[in-house]
Computed example of a mutant assay.
Amino acid sequence: MALSLPGERSVTAAMPNTPLRTVFAWFAKANADRTRRTALQSLLELDADRLDDLGLSHADIHEAMTARGGRTATMVLNTARARRSLR
């Protein structure tokens, strides 16, 4: 049995989930998603030779844009680069 001192609070008690905090979190996530999409779209504008220098292809970027199942765009692109470096 754990002993809890009167001055200690759990982490969840210290940070209540208020509607305002939820709105800010939603805006932060939307901003991060927009930044990621913009970066991937700018990679799509590069020609095939430049992407090859980076170890990527247009197909890799399209796959990263639609990453699902717990995989992030960074994971997809890093896997593609690692796969190409073995060639």
Rank of each mutant, 00 (worst) to 15 (best):
D49V: 12
S10Y: 05
D60T: 10
L5S: 13
W26H: 10
L44C: 04
L44M: 14
R34N: 10
G70H: 01
S42W: 04
L20S: 10
D52K: 11
L51M: 06
D47Y: 05
N31A: 14
A13W: 12
T12A: 12
R21H: 02
M65V: 06
A32D: 11
L40D: 00
R36L: 13
L5M: 14
R71L: 13
A59F: 06
F24I: 10
A73E: 02
R83L: 11
S57I: 06
A64S: 05
S10A: 08
G69D: 06
T38Q: 14
R87Q: 05
L3W: 12
L5W: 13
T18I: 09
A2S: 13
V76R: 07
R84G: 03
N17L: 15
F27K: 08
L56G: 03
R9N: 07
P19W: 02
H62T: 07
L5E: 15
L51A: 07
M75S: 11
A28V: 01
R21S: 08
G7H: 15
N78A: 07
S4V: 14
L56I: 01
S42R: 14
A48H: 08
L3A: 12
S10W: 01
R71K: 15
R81K: 15
A80E: 00
A48V: 11
L44A: 02
N31T: 12
A14D: 02
D47T: 02
R68Q: 14
R83D: 11
S10P: 06
A39C: 05
D33Q: 11
D60R: 04
D47F: 03
L46S: 05
N78G: 01
V23I: 12
